[in-house]
Design a binder for these strands. Structure first.
Lengths: 158, 158
DNA sequence: TTGATATCATTTGCATACGAATGAATTTCC
DNA sequence: GGAAATTCATTCGTATGCAAATGATATCAA
């Protein structure tokens, strides 16, 4: 009885495994998260090759400030997808470089207003053409049509 | 002559500007780098919701070790796209958790061999089904067909 | 063989990235 | 009006991620 039962269990196990051959062939390099991380790394590397003295988050902060003018730190953070702790560090470093200046909101005393300095505006205006090249080089492995499709799908994911 | 020349220059300038209206309408949220960063952030967040006690890089290290068995630290790093400094920290933390063990290469004394412990193998085997859910949820905004196209194009970029 | 190179690993320094805790100021709601 | 909840900013701790410098070991080449 013992032998027969074990044998039946073995067969059942094999059937189950045949229906789910997944467990054993998980391929890390094909997972979206892994490739996303690599694609992001590649982009950051291309960015650094074109703009050595500013990081992508710092550039994003300046570019957004150029769009919206003066805003609070948190507001800016939400516009460029950074939480409060992260945006503070970015703004601190931009302030130390003289690219942004801070002031207190007159009415709401909690808020810290951030705005571009003249130097910051010059910098971002000067860097935007380079940023276009960065975008182009990042998308270079794709044809124009592929790039358009990719951007549409990527936007859906983000 | 002076007036005529200036006038001609003005017209020329306007033509050039008409051909390149770019400078003023750089849209950060449409740049591939910015969206790539956001998509990556979203994936990391989904990952954390499913696997709270391990980060994506730590998971990648375990998954790759499961594939290839014992390897050197640097070799593992190149397999999962981490430089030497980064992979060291990841392996250190996995070692502290008892998921990997280190040993010296007998022949080449520079190399530090990394391998899964029994506990590490149990962990990765247990987590792989969750990782499949993470991949699925990350791609959820796309239809099956869109996801297939996206993965092909993303792989070209990375 | 030995001197130049290259590889493996470590360390340091800097810059995101985010959860959690804290304090100050504001808004909401009863 | 005032207590409760919310918002804004800061700080701390932990974890990538990478450049650059360093030391130990291997390999290559003259």
């Amino acid at each position: 009885m013992g032998w027969a039962a074990v044998s039946a269990d073995d067969n059942l196990l094999k059937l189950v495994e045949a229906e789910e051959p997944d467990e054993n062939d998980y391929r890390l390099q094909e997972q979206v998260g892994f490739i996303l991380r690599k694609a992001h790394q590649r982009h950051v590397s291309i960015f650094a090759a074109h703009i050595a003295d500013l990081t992508p988050p710092q550039f994003a902060a300046l570019a957004k400030l150029r769009d919206v003018g003066e805003t609070s730190q948190n507001q800016l953070g939400s516009l460029i997808a950074m939480d409060a702790a992260t945006v503070k560090g970015v703004i601190d470093r931009l302030k130390a470089r003289g690219f942004v200046e801070l002031s207190k909101h007159e009415v709401d005393k909690r808020r810290l207003l951030v705005s571009l300095t003249a130097e910051g505006r010059d910098a971002i205006d000067r860097l935007i053409p380079l940023a276009r090249e960065i975008t182009q080089e990042t998308l270079a492995p794709l044809s124009a049509k592929e790039a358009a499709i990719f951007m549409k799908l990527l936007a859906k994911l983000a």
